[in-house]
Design a protein around this nucleic acid. Sequence first.
DNA 1: ACGCTCACG
DNA 2: GACGTACGTGAGCGTA
Length: 932
Amino acid sequence: MGERFGKGCHLHLIDGSAFIFRAYHALPPLTRKSDGLPVGAVAGFCNMLWRYVQTDDGHTAPTHAAVIFDHSSKTFRNEIYPAYKAQRPEPPEDLRPQFPLTRDATRAFNIACIETEGYEADDIIAAMACAARNAGGTATIISSDKDLMQLIGDGVDMLDPIKNKLIGPDEVFEKFGVGPDRVVDVQALAGDAVDNVPGAPGIGIKTAALLIQEYGDLETLLSRAEEIKQPKRRQTLIEHADQIRVSKRLVQLDCATPLDVTLESLEVKAPDADRLLAFLSEMEFRTLTNRVAESLGAEAPAVQAAPASEAPAAPDQPAIDMGLYETVTTPEALDAWIAAIGEAGQVAIDTETTSLDEMQADLVGISLAVAPGRACYIPLGHVAGGDDLFGQSARVAGQLDPAAVLAALKPVLEDAAILKIGQNLKYDWKMLARHGIQMAPVADTMLMSYALNAGTHNHGMDELAERYLGHKCIPIKELIGSGKAQLHFGQVAIDKAAPYAAEDADVTLRLYQHFLPMLPVEKVSTVYHTLERPMIPVLAQMEMAGIRIDTDVLKRMSNAFAQKMAGLEDEIHGLAGQSFNIGSPKQLGEILFDKMGLSGGKQGKTGAFSTSADVLEDLAAEGHDLPARVLDWRQISKLKSTYTDALPTYVNAETGRVHTSYSITGAQTGRLSSTEPNLQNIPIRTEEGRRIRQAFIAPEGFKLVALDYSQIELRILAHVADIPALKQAFREGIDIHAMTASQMFGVPVEGMDPMIRRRAKAINFGVIYGISGFGLSRNLRIPRAEAQSFIDTYFERFPEIRAYMDKTVADAKQDGYVTTLFGRRINTPGINTSGPAAGGARRAAINAPIQGAAADIIRRAMIRMPDAIADLPARMLLQVHDELVFEVREDAVDDLIARARTIMEAAPEPSVRLSVPLVVDAGQGMNWAEAH
DNA sequence: ACGCTCACG
DNA sequence: GACGTACGTGAGCGTA
C-alpha cells in the first residue's frame, strides 16, 4: 500500500447510493439487448463515474478516493426510532438487480467500494471524513445530500456533482440559515418528511434557523423553551422536546462509525483498461465502451449487441502520390483510359468548371480514377492568364477538343454496366447533362457519408479525406486564390491544375472503397440505395428546369416597399427624436432601452439588448408606437432585401428562369435544403409576403400545380407512437386539432371556441418538437403554469406519446443514434452529455425520427415521380419539405394532380404500411400564390 | 467571421 | 429541486 495518509493527502468520498438513484430516475429503463437485464441505472452510474474520473476542473485532485454504498435498509437508527425511513418504498423491481452491478462497476473503474452492514453510507462517509481530517489531510464529499452538510468544516467540503458546484460553509448557511456545526440542530427541529424524521410539528427550516440563531444551540433552546414569545412555538417545543432529541440522534452522523478499511488502501489508481472495457462491453454499453477505449488509447472490445460481423476491411490502398497522375492530351491516351474504365467496371469522376454555379459554369476539365492511385486529368478549357482587349482569353494549346472528349466518354458514362462514382455527383451530373450526357448508374461518397454519419460531421470531401483517409487535400485556394483577385479554374495553369483535379478523383474512389463495406454493416444500405442515390438525377433535373419569375412584378413591389419604408423611417426617427439606423439591432436597442427607458432584459453572450419580434411585440402591446413601427419596417425590409430585390438577380440569362440548388446532405434529418436562392422559405404567412408568390409563374399555356401533404408529421407521430385516439381521428378525417382540444378540455368539436383549438394546435406541434411548459407558454403567451397543466393533461390523455418519447431518448442514449421508419439513421452525439445542451439534444432526438420519416416519404414520392408523369407535358420543379410544385400544360393539369397525388399518398408503400392515411391537398393556378 | 433577425416547413 | 427550454433550415444585415 501507499504512504501513510496525512498532510497533503486529499480524499474524495463519493455517495454511491445517491449516484444510483439519480441515474435510475434520470434515465429511461434501458435493458441489455442480449438478455433483457435492466441496466439503465448501471449505465447512468458508469457514465457519472466516467465523467467524474475524466473531470479535472480545478478542485483539488484526489490522492485517495472511495465510493460508499448503503448496505441494507435496517440500521441502528431503526432501534432508536422504528419509523425511521420506514415509509420509504421498496426500490423498484428493475432497480434491485442493478445494485450489485454498480459495485462491480466501481471496482471495474478501480475505485475502492465501501459498505458496512448496519450502517448507512452517510455514517461511513462521516467516519472517513473525520479520519482524513484527524490524520491531517482533507476530504471532499461528492454528493448533494443535505444530510451530509453537517460534516463541512475544516478540511472537509462537498461537491455537488450535478451542478458541479462546491458546497462550503457559505452555501450551507444559505440553505439552513446556520453554519455546518448547527445543521443537525436545525434538522432536528425541522424534521424530514422523506426520511420520517419527526422533528417539531409546524416548524420548518426557516423557523428552526431563527430559533437556533437566537439561542445558540439546540440544548440551550430546549432548556430555555419557556422564554419563547410565540405561544404556539413555545408549547410545541416543550411538548415535543423528547421527539426533537430523538430526531437529532437520527440526523446526527457518527464519526465513530467503525471502518474496516484503512485510508491508505483508498489510494487513487489508474483504471485498468482491459478490466474496465471488459465490464462495459459485457454490459453492452456501446457508446461508453468506445468513448472509454478512445480515451484510454485501447482497443474497444466488440460489444455483443453490436453487429457480430465486423466490417470487411477496405482493400489496402497505396499512399496518395500526386506525381503518379497523368495528364491526358492525346486521343490515344484517352482511349486507353476509356478501356481501363471498361475493365474496372467503375470510374470515379470529377469535373472542373469556371464557377460553382453549375447552370452557368463552363467545363474546364475532367478527372477520372479507376483504381486507388490510378487517376488522370483531361484539360479541356484552360485559358491563358490575362484577358485580351475583348475580355476573351486565349485557349491554351495542347488540350483535347471538349466535344470530342465528351463524345468519347458518353458511352461509358451512360453504360448501365459501369458505375460512376462522385463526391457530390449532382454537380457533375448537371454539368454533363448540359452537354447531353445523363450519367447512370451513380454512386456518391457524400451521400454514403450522409447515410452513415448524419449528425456526426459534415460530408465535404476535404473533411472526409482527412477523417477517413488521413489525407489533407490541396486547398483550392492555393490554386485560385481568394477574395477579389480569385481566378476561375480555367485560369489555373494545367500543370498546377492536373494534380489537384486528379487527386479529387483518386480521393473519391478511395472514399468509395472505404464506405461501401460499411453500409451493410451499419445497416444503412437500403437508405443509401433507395433514398439517397436516386435523388441525384431527380434533383438535378428539377434544378435544371428552374422556375419562371415575373421580375416586373417583383420590381414594382420593391418600389412600393421602398416608399413605404421611407415613410416608416421618418415616423420612427420622429418618435425617437433622432436619426439612427433602424436595421441595426444595437442602435435600436440603445434607443429603446437606454434613451426611452423601456423595460426589457439584456441578452446573453454579447450583453446586447434583444430586439427580436417577440420583444418588440410585447412593447407594442404596452402601447408604445416606436416598436410597433419598427416591426412594420422590419417586415417590409425583409421582404424587399431577401425577396423582391434579390430574386431577380438569380434569373439565369440563358434560361430566363431561377434555378435553386438543393443540398441533399444539408439537414441532419433527411430533409433537403435549398440555396442560391433558397426557394423553401418564400413568404406565405402574411398577406403582404404572400404576394411575392404571385411572381412565381408558369409559361404561356401552362399552370403551376402545388401538392402538399396534410399534417404529415402528426400522422407519422400517430403511427410510430401508436396513439389510438389520434389514429382514429385521422382515419375518420376529423379536424385533428379540434379533436385534440375536445379530448383535452372535454368540449364538443362542434362550435368549438377557436382559442381552445388554437391551444390544442400549438400543443400538437409542440409535441413533435419535444415540448416544454416554458416553450408553450411563450408560444401561446399564457402563464407557464397554465401551459404546463395543458401539457400534463395532454400526456394524460395520450400516454403513448410519453412512452414513445422516452423510448426514443433511451434508444439514442444507448445506440448514439435514432432511426426513422425507413431506416434512416440520424446520429445523436450530444445525447449523453450533461449541461444545458442536453435538453436540446434530447428534443432533437425526439424530433428527428418524425421529421426524418416525413422527409423519407416525400423523397420516395419524388424518386418515383419522373417515371409516373413521363408521358405528361409536366415537370416537377420545387420541393418544400411537404410540398411538390409542378409546371403542367393546362390540358394535363387534372391528370397530373391525379397521378402525383397517387404517388405521394402511396409513397411509404410497400416498405411501410402506415396505420393512418396520408392525405394530399392540391391547388393550381397561374402563379404559386394561386396554386395554394 | 459571427451574431441577430426572420422567412419557411 | 433546479436547469434552460420547442425541431429543422438559409439569407441579409450590422458589427467586430
